[in-house]
């Protein structure tokens, strides 16, 4: 492979930052980024529309939402509840959160496609049980400026004097810690094997298989 298409992929073994609690189960990606903001051909500028309909009323006046509160403006670790990111597969959702400033999400559980989309951006989605999460959310509410530290490799989160065990999906952990979460380069290096696989499949016409580079 030529050097030019190699992209530097950082290792994400540790993330820290102050927290922001976003409460509620089953928060779907339509809420994280309403469809009308997806009429774009790049992800730039999506950050300001994150959670838009929960943050603003019809006349664009701010509503009660943690993302509107001054004290959370510099937060980068979002703490959520269960089945976060369900619904539409839109990568616009984690893109919007990332562009708003989120580097990691701690929650009770995540929808799979959402977690996969986060991983593709190098955003860890780590989980703990519901009680632990609620305690953390309450703590963040009281300590909006204090750091939460996520040790992805050791699967630990530390805040104040507390350290809790969290779970990071095995493949996600490896990908983040070893810096192989950007799979394009990795998989492109197997191009020959991919072509061989294509040839074995009865439904793939020969002319659909590209010549070796």
């Amino acid at each position: 492979m030529s050097g030019s298409d190699e992209v530097e992929i950082p290792e994400v073994d540790y993330v820290s930052g102050s927290g922001i609690p976003v409460r509620g189960n089953d928060i779907d990606t339509d809420q994280i980024i309403p469809a009308r903001f997806m009429k774009v051909v790049t992800f730039d500028g999506l950050g300001e529309f994150a959670f838009f309909d929960l943050r603003f009323d019809d006349d664009d006046n701010p509503k009660d939402h943690p993302m509107n509160e001054d004290r959370f403006q510099n937060s980068s670790v979002m703490v959520v509840n269960s089945n976060f990111g369900c619904g539409s597969s839109r990568e616009h959702a984690p893109q919007a959160l990332m562009r708003w400033g989120i580097d990691a999400i701690i929650g009770e559980s995540f929808a799979e496609i959402f977690a996969g989309n986060c991983l593709a951006l190098g955003i860890p989605t780590v989980t703990a049980d519901s009680e632990t999460i609620q305690e953390l959310q309450d703590w963040v509410d009281e300590h909006p400026d204090e750091e939460i530290e996520i040790d992805v490799e050791a699967e630990e989160v530390t805040y104040g004097d507390t350290t809790i065990d969290v779970t990071v999906d095995e493949a996600q952990r490896k990908a983040l810690v070893d810096g192989v979460w950007d799979t394009t380069a990795l998989m492109k290096s197997n191009a020959d094997a991919v072509r061989e696989k294509a040839k074995e499949l009865p439904y793939v016409d020969d002319e659909a298989i590209p010549e070796a580079e």
Binding site: F43, S89, E91, I113, A120, L121, D182, T184, K188, N190
Partner: peptide, 14 residues
């Protein structure tokens, strides 16, 4: 799949 995976499929067929 998400957009980064679309990129993967476009670039690698996998």
């Amino acid at each position: 799949i998400g957009t980064s995976q679309i990129r993967d499929v476009l670039a690698t067929g996998t």
